[in-house]
């Protein structure tokens, strides 16, 4: 496949995931609202927000890093997605997954977070920095069980290559990692709760109270870009989880189905539980899921 062709299909696939990710976000808002007894915004509200924000005419900036923050963020989201093969067996939806294996994806996630944190830092708002410090702290904690579950997969499948991991899960749903290595999947799903920053791990952005979090100072097209990324990034993470643990997908329909339910897991938990403090969530991630992860690694290393 020529490089131009590849780029073209990458754009298509990016468009698909953006739309699907934003739709998912809209659904999540709706679900949360209903759980809390509200009517909630329409499902397409994220699209409206993005268009509105991009159409704003005035904007202020605190400096170059502040300006680049959202760019870093969305580049992180797109990049992460670009390194994941989306549909198993499809030459069109494999993006640039040849660039590297799951390690690359795991580390590219940090690209956007780091850039965003720096941009927010230049804004000079203490809430941004506080949220970053909380978010980073929590991130170090949930990465441990997640890494353990990936290591467990390596022990199981002998590969870091996402396509190969998906290939090993083909042939009936019983061959999904969910069933062949349930401990690793449980571990990974718990750490995904942290990644998605819904309750009980929402102290980072504290969505219900005062606006806290890196986007505190962002507005207009900056915010639009960040909102777009929310869709892309959510989609990328879901596709990654689907590939690693739920047998991947061979067409877009299955992809939507699977990613929806994976997402719903953290949404349901998030809707049902109260919030941890940062140190509590660190302790939580480093105890139960970590122990589960170690067990799952040990099970497959002997």
């Amino acid at each position: 496949m020529s490089i131009a062709f590849k780029v073209f299909w990458a754009f298509i696939s990016l468009g698909v995931v953006t739309v699907w990710g934003l739709t998912l976000n809209g659904m999540v808002h709706k679900i949360f609202a209903r759980v809390q007894g509200r009517l909630g915004p329409p499902v397409w509200q994220p699209f409206i927000d993005i268009i509105k924000n991009n159409a704003k005419r005035t904007a202020i900036t605190h400096g170059i890093m502040f300006y680049l923050g959202p760019v870093f963020r969305i580049a992180g989201g797109i990049g992460t997605y670009m390194f994941i093969p989306v549909l198993f067996g499809s030459a069109y939806f494999s993006n640039f997954s040849l660039s590297g294996d799951v390690l690359l994806v795991m580390y590219f996630i940090f690209f956007g977070q780091l850039g965003m944190a720096l941009g927010a830092g230049e804004g000079g708002h203490p809430y941004s920095a506080i949220a970053v410090s909380r978010g980073l702290a929590q991130m170090t904690a949930f990465e441990v069980p997640f890494a353990l579950s990936v290591i467990s997969l390596v022990a199981q499948y002998g590969t870091l290559n996402i396509t190969e991991i998906v290939a090993a899960q083909q042939g009936g749903f019983l061959r999904w990692t969910l069933f062949t290595n349930p401990l690793a999947v449980i571990t990974a799903m718990i750490s995904m709760l942290g990644m998605n920053m819904y309750n009980p791990f929402s102290v980072v952005i504290a969505p219900q109270e005062i606006p806290i979090g890196p986007p505190t100072e962002y507005h207009s097209s900056f915010l639009g870009m960040l909102a777009t990324n929310r869709g892309i990034f959510a989609g990328a993470k879901l596709v990654l989880f689907m590939n690693l643990f739920f047998g991947g997908a061979t067409n877009l329909l299955i992809l939507m189905l699977k990613t929806f339910w994976i997402y719903m897991f953290s949404v349901f938990v998030g809707a049902a539980y109260p919030r941890f403090r940062t140190e509590d969530s660190i302790r939580f991630f480093l105890t139960y899921p970590t122990i589960l992860g170690i067990i799952s690694v040990l099970l497959f290393s002997f």
Binding site: S99, G100, L104, N161
Partner: peptide, 10 residues
């Protein structure tokens, strides 16, 4: 273990 890394492409 299988894996790959293409730093240039990345």
């Amino acid at each position: 273990l299988h894996g790959n890394w293409n730093g240039n492409l990345v």
